[in-house]
């Protein structure tokens, strides 16, 4: 069992780069929404907070179906803010450590649970995945420690948009991307997951090729 008590899932964005005209978390794989997949991964985490914005009624309806005890956090300014703002809103009123993740991810369940089991109190930890997405944030590594992020010159691993972080990291934020904000707290330890982001049509195609890995039938 992991010590993870709280999770904040960012599901507010427009998903315009994917261009499906709906939130990325509602894209379906064989009849299972990405949101249902994420909620199934988080079934042992007692306090799950999902930050909604774009088409919030549709996201809330799906959440009501798959995880009715989740807490919906509204981000009415989703069009003018970044995921960083959603994370800060989601973690408001929480203390200690929290799992932060995006809602547009498909993850091999065993690797996700291994990551959660490796989380320790007060020890910030990033989940990395083999580099593959079009718009990756590459991790610079020294052993298991992430020492830097970069957008050019691919490294072997990219940040998966999953992190275990003290909530206090989000008390003072600017209008930046999450990885830019996290730079000030580097180095951080890391663990590997097998995950696919569906930011673009190419990413989605890649995830679909690997759909059998995600345990979707069990969702």
């Amino acid at each position: 069992m992991s010590i993870v008590e709280h999770a904040v899932v960012a599901a507010a964005g427009l998903g315009s780069r994917l261009g499906h005209g709906k939130p990325k978390c509602l894209v379906e794989f064989g009849g299972v929404s990405v949101l249902a997949h994420i909620m199934s991964l988080l079934k042992d985490v007692p306090d799950v907070r999902v930050v909604v914005g774009f088409m919030e009624a549709a996201v809330i309806a799906e959440l009501q179906r798959v995880r009715p005890d989740a807490i919906v956090v509204r981000n009415p300014s989703f069009r003018t803010t970044t995921t960083l703002h959603s994370y800060a809103l989601g973690a408001q009123h929480l203390t200690g450590d929290c799992l932060f993740m995006d809602a547009d991810l498909l993850i091999v369940p065993e690797t996700f649970h291994t990551f959660l089991e490796g989380c320790r109190p007060g020890e910030a930890r990033l989940a990395l995945t083999a580099s593959k997405t079009k718009d990756a944030v590459y991790a610079e590594l020294d052993g298991e420690a992430v020492t830097g992020f970069r957008r050019e010159n691919p490294t072997a691993f990219e940040w998966s948009n999953i992190s275990w972080l003290p909530v206090k990291y989000f008390t003072d934020i600017g209008m930046t991307a999450v990885y830019e904000h996290l730079r000030r707290y580097l180095p951080m330890t890391s663990g590997e997951v097998v995950s696919f982001e569906i930011d673009t049509a190419e990413d989605l195609a890649q995830a679909k090729e690997n759909a059998q890995l995600f345990g979707l039938a069990a969702t």
Binding site: P46, D47, A57, Q64, P68, A70, I71, V72, V73, R74
Partner: peptide, 22 residues
């Protein structure tokens, strides 16, 4: 109502978990 809310909860368990952190 949702448009002026900060949170939406969908059952008593989720609601009370939220309230206990406020």
């Amino acid at each position: 109502l949702i448009s002026v809310a900060d949170y939406v909860t969908m059952n008593g368990k989720g609601l009370c978990r939220l309230l206990s952190t406020l």
